[in-house]
Amino acid sequence: MICSAIFTTSWPVWEDYNHTKADFRLSGSRAWVFNNFDLQLFSGEKTEDATPKRKQEARKKGQVAKSIEINAVFVILAAFFTLKMLGPVIYSQLEEYMVLIFSNLVKSDLTIQAVQILFFDLSWVIAKTILPLMFAISVIALAVNFMQVGFIFSPQILMPDLSKLNPISGFQRLFSKRSLAELVKSICKVAVIGYFIYRFALINAAQIPKLISFELIDSLKLASTLIVDLVFQIIAVMFVLAVLDFLYQWWEHNQSLKMSKQEVKEEYKQTEGNPQIKGKIKEKQRALAMRRMMQQVPQADVVITNPVHLAIALQYDKTMTAPVVVAKGQDFLAQRIKDIARENRVVIVENKPLARALYPVVEIGEPIPPELYQAVAEVLAHVYRLKKRLS
């Protein structure tokens, strides 16, 4: 009676799209089927990891996981390491130039030619002292960027974006979750680095009064030593913070690229094609292949069966190195092959072991394997004798 009420109701019955679960509620002679819909498809919630295509498109736009802190750490390290290595050379060159200038400047007239010579000498000294430092910083900065994101050429970043001039959008970016995270990171970085500077100052507080009693050169050496030691300690702390920042940037980048299930489906349709259309195409391709296969059955010399479930049609002539399978099938298709064979007077031979051996190893259009030559030859010899007797 319940089944009759369900199927005879005049109310519409909605079938579940994935045929999994349904909640039946009966009220008198009427029944409704409430389906378990995936509400995430309608909410647009981004819960799926980004596809390779989405990541590639983001990369083309310059959207990659990158930590500026790592760049800053290695640039500062390169600068101070270069200064520590080339410091004595830079100091001696500057010293020679200053001595030359102040010793000759008072002895010569300040003419245009003298000013030009002075300018060229100063440029040459600056080039010899500054260019190695700038070169080291540039090489390290490019190398660190390349290690983080690889080679990227994105002209879209250079294109003007008028939406960035919108004050409302700028205000939203200013108070966004990303801006808040950057503020928290900056505060933590300043606090940690400030603590280590304070700690270094306490440890080396006894060295600072010595700068007053030392000569100028000795004071500069001591000050430079203290500064370099402090900088390398700060760099070590900043490196740990930079690694944590890179991990956060990588996580935040992946979160920003996440997709909803509907976006994944739409992308799949764009790249692979509509699954329904592809299914129809494959169905037509199978139908055409089936039709071509059935057209080859009348040309076969023999159809080997087991006898109900399998049927394999073989063809052989003197131009072939071995008999070729022109058609095969099981169950309904096997019955269809046998029907066509009977209509065209193709000999049907029942041989269960041979049929079971041929069906899984030979595809349509392929010759039989050598290990089955003798068994097939016996069948073909029987067929030829039979045809000769009938003729």
Rank of each mutant, 00 (worst) to 15 (best):
S4E: 11
T8V: 05
W11G: 10
Y17R: 07
Y17K: 09
K21A: 07
S27Y: 11
S27V: 03
R30N: 13
V33T: 07
V33R: 00
F34R: 07
D38L: 02
G44K: 02
D49H: 03
Q56Y: 11
E57D: 11
S67H: 00
E69Y: 01
V73G: 01
F74H: 03
T82V: 08
M85A: 09
L86A: 07
G87D: 02
I90H: 09
Y91T: 15
Y91W: 13
S92V: 05
L94D: 03
E95G: 08
S103K: 14
L110T: 05
T111G: 11
A114D: 15
I117N: 08
L122I: 11
S123F: 15
I126W: 12
I130R: 06
M134R: 05
I137F: 05
I140S: 06
G150M: 12
F151S: 09
I152C: 14
I157W: 15
S179Y: 10
L180A: 13
E182V: 04
G194W: 08
A201M: 11
A205P: 00
Q207R: 13
I208G: 04
P209V: 02
I212Y: 11
S213E: 11
L216P: 04
I217G: 08
K221F: 06
V228A: 14
D229E: 10
L230M: 11
V231C: 10
I234P: 00
M238Y: 10
V240Y: 05
V243W: 10
L244S: 12
D245A: 12
D245H: 10
Y248A: 15
Q249E: 11
N254Y: 13
S260G: 08
K261V: 11
E267D: 13
Y268C: 08
T271V: 08
T271A: 07
P275S: 06
I277A: 02
G279D: 02
M290T: 07
V297H: 02
I304G: 08
T305A: 14
T321A: 09
V324H: 03
A327G: 12
R336I: 02
D339L: 07
D339S: 13
A341W: 04
V346Y: 01
V346N: 01
V347K: 10
V347D: 07
V349K: 09
V349E: 14
N351P: 03
L354H: 00
A355V: 01
A355K: 00
P360S: 05
V361P: 01
E366H: 09
E371G: 00
E371K: 07
Y373T: 04
Q374V: 07
V383W: 08
K388M: 06
L390R: 14
